[in-house]
Design a protein around this nucleic acid. Sequence first.
DNA 1: TCATATACCGCCCTCTGCTGGCAAGGC
DNA 2: AGCCTTGCCAGCAGAGGGCGGTATATGA
Length: 617
Amino acid sequence: MAATEISVLSEQFTKIKELELMPEKGLKEEEKDGVCREKDHRSPSELEAACTSGALQDSVLEEEVELVPATSEESEKHMLTLQTVHFTSEAVELQDMSLLSIQQQEGVQVMVQQAGPGLLWLEEGPRQSLQQYVAISIQQELYSLQEMEVLQFHALEENVMVASEDSKLAVSLAESAGLIKLQEGQEKNQLLIERLAERTKEQLFFVETMSGDERSDEIVLTISNLNVEEQEDQPTTDQTDVEKAKSTKNQRKTKGAKRTFHCDVCMFTSSRMSSFNRHMKTHTNEKPHLCHLCLKTFRTVTLLRNHVNTHTGTRPYKCNDCNMAFVTSGELVRHRRYKHTHEKPFKCSMCKYASVEASKLKRHVRSHTGERPFQCCQCSYASRDTYKLKRHMRTHSGVHMRNLHAYSAAELKCRYCSAVFHERYALIQHQKTHKNEKRFKCEHCSYACKQERHMTAHIRTHTGEKPFTCLSCNKCFRQKQLLNVHFRKYHDANFIPTVYKCSKCGKGFSRWSNMHRHSEKCGSGEAKLAASGKGRKTRKRKQTILREATKGQKEAAKGWKEAANGDEAAAKEASAPKREQFPGEMLPGACGETTARVKEDVDEGVTCEMLLNMMDK
DNA sequence: TCATATACCGCCCTCTGCTGGCAAGGC
DNA sequence: AGCCTTGCCAGCAGAGGGCGGTATATGA
C-alpha cells in the first residue's frame, strides 16, 4: 500500500448510524426471495472521488449498526455490526492484524477493503493501493458466517463509500473464520477469486450493493454463496455449505476448466460472471423505473418503455402480412405463428394436438390428465383453466343457486349407479359420466333412446301407468306435459289456443296439419306463416321454404314437407300437384313466448274471440 | 443498453356437446 | 283428442384460438 494514496483518503468514508430493527414484514420478504437489501449508494465515480478527496483519520472510528440477516429464522434480535473504519497506513496494518486476531478468537468479522477504483478486496499479502475500509463485524454469539447464505445490511450512511450501483463483489470467505474478500469486475474478478480460493481454500461468497429508496440514505448489501465450480463436476444444490466448500476445493484442483456460477436462490447457472451478476438482480424487488402515467414501477428501462407504449398505443412491431401491429417483438412473432406461418412448436405427446404457445399445450394436457386446478369456492365445480371458472361463477346467481347448488338434505341418487349426492349439480356432473348413445332400451319392445325421461314415458305405454292426474276433473295422463295441455285447454280461462289460419278462406285450425289438409281442398297456395310456437330454427326453415313455396315451386313444397316432418309418406304426399301451394297463416297460442306473440297480435286488433272463432272447433 | 427469444398469466372469444324444458308432429 | 316421440332452444361446460401484457434470459 502506498502511503501517498492513503494520505488523500477522506477523513471518514463511512459514517454509520444506528438503525432500527427491521420490521417482521421485511424479514418475511427477505426469507421469501432470499435477497438482501440496503439502500442508497454512489456511483463509481462518486465513490472514487470520495476515496480520494480526503484523508483517513488517524484513528479507527467505530459506530455500530444493528443489522438483521435475511436468513434468520427468528424475526428479530439478530444483529450484525457494521463499523466504519478510518485508517492511516499504520492503522490499516493494525486493523488487518486485528482482524486476523479476531478470527483466531472465533469471532466473526468481515472486512471490506477498497483497493482502488471499483475494487474492494482484502488479502493477507502486501497492501495494494489501500484506501478505504468498511469493517463488518458479526457478533460471534449470534452468527457464524457459514450459517448465512444471505445477509442483509441496512445502514444509514453519510458520505458512504461502499460500492458502486452496479458493483458485484466476489467474496472469499474463510471457512473457519469468515474473512470476506471483495473484488469488483468480471474476468478480473474470476481470476482473483480463483487465485484467492486456491490460496486460502475458502468458500466464495457473493456481495452486491444496490440503491434503495432515494428519500433515505440507505444502501442494500447482499451477501450470498458463490459457488465457483468446474463444469465436469457440479455439486447438487442441496449440499451443505461445508460440502459445497469441499466440493469447491476439489474442483479448483483442475485448472483451465470452464467455471459455472450457481445461484443459491434459484436454479440459475451461468458460465459468465456478468450474466450471473445480472441474474442476481432478478432476486431483488428493486424496480426503479416509474411510469409517470400510472405510477407502476419496472425493473428495467425496456420494460418501462413497453409499458408506456401500452398507454400511448405505440406499436412499433408491424406485421408484413397484415395490418396488425404490436408493442413487443414477441407478440408479433406469436401473431405470425397464429395467422400466417401456422407454426406450432408445442406438440402433445398423447395426441396430435399442437399449439403456438406452451401455455396452450399445458392447458390442453389437462384434458388428458383430468386435472382441474381451479376450484369454485361456492360449489364442487372445478375448472381446467381460469376463464372457465370465471365463466362458471356467473352461474352463481340466486335462481341458479337454488336450482343447482342448494344443499339437499335428501339423498340425490344417481340414476345409473349407487352414488349419492346432496347437491344437484354434483349429481348432474356425475351422471354425465354414464352418458352413452341410446343406452336406454325397452325390456318390452325394441324401443331405445338416449334419455331416461323418454324411456320412463315409454315404459308407461306398456304398464298403463298414468301418474299425472288433473285436479279439476281427475283425468289421468302418462306425461306431465299432456296434463298441462289438458288443464290449459279445459280449465284455464286465460288459455289462448294456437290457431292456424288458412290465408285463402280465413278459417282457423288448432293444428297446422289440419289446416294444411284443408288448404289442399281449399286450393290456397299462398298461405303464409305468420308465427309459430316452434323453435327459432324451425320457424326460419319454414319461412325459407315458404318463400320458395310462394313462388309456386313444387319442389320446395316437397322439401318443406320432408324437412318439416321427416316423413316419407308425407313427403310423397307433398309431391302431389296440390301441394305446390302452401298452407295458410299460422297463429301462435298457449303460454310463454307464444302467448306473448298472440298478445302482440291482440294489440294489433286481433282479439281472443276472433282467434277462437277462427278455430275449427 | 438494446434487441430478441421465450415463458407465463390473463382475458375474451368461438365452436361444440350435453341437458332439461317445452313445443310440435305423427299415429 | 290423446298418446308418444322427436326436435328445438337456452343454459352451461369443454376445448381451443388469438391477443395483451409482463418478466426473464441471453447475445451483441
